[in-house]
């Protein structure tokens, strides 16, 4: 019953998003594309935070790698092929996640938070010092990737609606993949690790391998989000690897309600819309945002998703 209702709500939300370009102008299409990119990013982090109990404060590292991968793969004044550059960007993020994961997974608990942050900062400073990657000024990607395949172009990413649908497809695919992963035996083992890692080991689970696999999957999907972000804005800067973005995406996951996937999507919508609304009102928009976050922690112990579930219960 509960599951059926959840499925109906999700399908309805997807239908609304699919119909949105018929109603909205360019500005809102771009805003919503940005939100959906953050939602993909947040869902990938939810696999770590909500399902495995790994609180990464450096997840932007993989987002940034996906973004910089598009820059590296794009010829200067021509388009990269989507079908080549996208898998390579995702692959680059996955490889980086495997290498970093091997190191950071030696730490646990609160030191994991600090160590993931520190590794992301390491990449951040690497990019700052790298001339080929544009240093602190960032780099421009002048031409969006092309979707042409054997002379046929299904959709142009230069059209806002075209790009919007690409992002929507990526969002749906990410949700389905992560849903599949979390409901598999592997996903159940991750939940076991989150609940009681030492017991898992005593039962015979090589928990470090499981955590590493989760870290790589999450990193790969974060790379997808970063790639899409670079495509949308045509500009990549070290901020995409920075701790502020890592913090923001963590906020989306926690505010939305961990371990639900759709909660992360909700968190992305609320946080990006809030930022967007607040920047219109005041130059000091971080103040109300910060207060909102503080109050949310103090008053909503289980995130916005928890609030929804509670409202639903009251309704029943």
């Amino acid at each position: 019953m509960q599951a059926a209702r959840e499925r109906t709500m999700l399908l309805a939300a997807f239908a609304l998003l699919a119909l949105f370009p018929l109603l909205a102008g360019t500005f809102y299409l771009q805003l919503f594309a940005k939100i959906m990119i953050m939602a993909i990013f947040a869902m990938s982090l939810d696999l770590l935070v909500g399902y495995t109990g790994l609180v990464s404060f450096g997840h932007a590292a993989f987002f940034g790698i996906g973004a910089y991968a598009l820059f590296v793969l794009s010829p200067q004044y021509a388009a990269a092929s989507l079908y080549l550059s996208l898998p390579m960007a995702i692959g680059a993020a996955a490889v980086a996640a495997a290498v970093i994961g091997l190191l950071v997974l030696r730490a646990s608990g609160v030191s994991f938070i600090m160590v993931t942050l520190a590794f992301a900062q390491m990449l951040f400073y690497y990019v700052i010092g790298s001339k080929t990657l544009g240093g602190s000024d960032g780099v421009y990607i002048y031409v969006k990737p092309s979707t042409t395949l054997f002379g046929w172009t299904p959709v142009s990413l230069d059209r806002p609606a075209g790009f919007y649908y690409l992002v929507l497809a990526a969002l749906a695919a990410t949700y389905l993949v992560l849903r599949f992963v979390t409901r598999s035996l592997f996903g159940h083992a991750l939940l076991g690790i989150r609940s009681n890692e030492s017991r898992m080991r005593a039962l015979g689970f090589a928990t470090t391998s499981y955590k590493l696999a989760a870290f790589v999957i999450a990193g790969a999907i974060a790379g997808l989000a970063g790639y899409l972000d670079a495509t949308q804005f045509g500009f990549v800067s070290p901020d995409l690897l920075g701790w502020r973005l890592s913090g923001e995406v963590l906020m989306m996951v926690i505010l939305g309600g961990m371990g639900t996937l759709y909660g992360s999507v909700l968190g992305a919508f609320v946080l990006v819309l809030l930022q967007d609304g607040l920047t219109d009102v005041t130059r000091h928009w971080l103040l109300p945002l910060g207060l909102f976050i503080i109050l949310a922690v103090l008053l909503l112990p289980r995130g916005l998703g928890g609030l929804l579930r509670r409202a639903e219960k009251a309704h029943d």
Partner: peptide
């Protein structure tokens, strides 16, 4: 359960 068999749906 091992390897790719881990991605079978639990139920």
């Amino acid at each position: 359960a091992h390897g790719l068999g881990l991605f079978r749906q639990a139920r």
